[in-house]
Amino acid sequence: MRSNTKKELLLKYGIPCLSVVVVAVQLFFVSERQLSKWKGGGYGMYSEIHYYYNQIYIPDLSVDSLVKTSLEMKETLGYLMVMPNDKNIENAAKLILETTQRDSVFVQLWKPVVSLKNKTFTRALVNEIYLKKSDL
């Protein structure tokens, strides 16, 4: 009888509990790894401006052209947009150095900032890195 109750509880709430685990993982990544709330299965879509509006800025280099160089570059810069943490910006800088044969690279990630009070649109710096080839 008792095992039946346990089994019923497991069948009723096992799958929802699994979804809560996914949510907990997403919340961890949002707070510790700077993941956009839009992704990771935590149902945080439409709670902040989409990461698509983030901007990667590299002086004297077109990001649009850079993205087209390889699938790896597209993925690496994509990860930087959705999760602009230190690891991802470093990975992006390393790959850019390897691809462009430069001696150094300066990569910044900016996010949009809108103020309805002032009716303005501007950008705020999220993360940046200056990497030299000699550092690799």
Partner: peptide, 10 residues
């Protein structure tokens, strides 16, 4: 250049 901290009116 975003470092110039320009902003625009919406």
């Amino acid at each position: 250049d975003p470092n110039l901290e320009h902003s625009i009116a919406v």
